[in-house]
Amino acid sequence: MGEEQAASVTKQFRQFDVVTDYSDHEYAELKNPPINTGSATYKTIMKEWKVLRDSLPESIYVRVYEGRIDLLRAVIVGASGTPYHNGLFFFDFQFPPSYPDVPPQGHYKSFGLHLNPNLYDSGYICLSLLNTWPGPKWEPWRSTMLQVLVSLQALVLNEKPYFNEPLLLIWFEKLSTRYNNDVFVMSCKTMMFLLQKNPNNFEDFIVEHFRSHGRDILTACKVYTEGFATVGHYQNEDSFLPERVHVSSEFKDSMTWVYPRLVKAFEKIQKNGPNDPSLRNFISQLDLMIGKTKAEYIQKLEENKEENKKRMMKLDFFGKLKEIFGLNTSAESNAAGIEASLLEKGSVGTKGIEACY
């Protein structure tokens, strides 16, 4: 299946649907009294379903359960411009018997990875709307499940998650960049875990999502490892920075471990099986593109070095002339004036000046 076909299949996956199998849900074993169809809790949950069915953003998908209306599962697709881009992040929720007087309780499917200050490796979710984090609290009869999901997407899985921690200041930008690198590695590991064990009712969605976006993910791995773009900001070759950024040895080592395993995981889900040559052909082309881009960066660096060398020689030459003529202003800004003065005095011909630098 080609990328366009895979993307089409992903789009056909309903954003909201009612299903029956909740056996792997985090709160499946939680036994609360059945919710009476005439209760305020039941009516509120039905309203929540309608809002979710009509108003979900394109990158959030939800499943609710016919036999357990108190349970809900959602997946959020990591947004472009963040270290979570193209990743999938699963959340299980349970509506307590006193809902909506109290917020839903939630659990993040972490696979033991702590990839956000608000999402613990235990699955614990820190979010003000769930009354588990500083900020605006859950307001009964006003707050909604949709607000919770949108907050997770926009406020938690954001461009600079390092600053989700209270009291961290903006001048810790370098630490934020390093944190984004770690987050991207953990996001890639999460992809592999999801492909090994698909959460129920999302099996087809997960496979088709990574068939559609796998090549972009692999390209991002290479681009970030080589320093062509900072983590989270690769979209295409237009995203490449004018100069390569420094990449830590720790990040390079992590990606050296992750990349080949991610390739194998994506190979297994190819439509024609792991021996499908299309992905391997893509990787060969990707390696050629990376090699060519590295050579272009090196050439540009050498050209810049040569230009800087000529500029410094020129400044040094005019600095010495400044001493001779007793000028007090900067040599660089008065270079043209000095040259005109020399020509006027007839001391040095134009060719002589050029020969000096």
Score class of each variant (00 low, 15 high):
219 T>L: 03
222 K>I: 04
223 V>A: 13
224 Y>V: 00
225 T>F: 02
227 G>W: 07
227 G>I: 05
227 G>L: 14
229 A>G: 00
233 H>D: 09
234 Y>N: 13
234 Y>H: 15
237 E>N: 05
239 S>W: 10
239 S>G: 10
239 S>D: 05
240 F>S: 08
241 L>Y: 06
243 E>R: 09
244 R>A: 00
247 V>G: 04
249 S>F: 15
249 S>P: 01
251 F>A: 02
252 K>A: 14
255 M>G: 00
256 T>H: 12
257 W>H: 12
260 P>H: 10
262 L>P: 02
262 L>R: 02
264 K>S: 05
266 F>W: 05
266 F>L: 13
269 I>F: 04
270 Q>C: 09
271 K>H: 11
272 N>P: 06
273 G>N: 08
274 P>A: 12
274 P>W: 03
275 N>G: 14
275 N>M: 06
276 D>M: 01
278 S>I: 14
279 L>G: 00
279 L>D: 00
280 R>P: 06
282 F>D: 11
282 F>V: 06
283 I>K: 01
283 I>D: 02
284 S>C: 04
286 L>K: 04
287 D>T: 06
288 L>Y: 08
289 M>A: 10
289 M>Q: 09
290 I>Q: 03
290 I>C: 01
290 I>G: 01
291 G>R: 14
293 T>C: 02
293 T>V: 05
294 K>S: 07
294 K>V: 14
295 A>Y: 15
295 A>W: 15
296 E>C: 09
298 I>L: 12
298 I>M: 11
299 Q>Y: 07
300 K>P: 07
301 L>R: 06
301 L>D: 15
304 N>P: 00
307 E>W: 07
307 E>I: 09
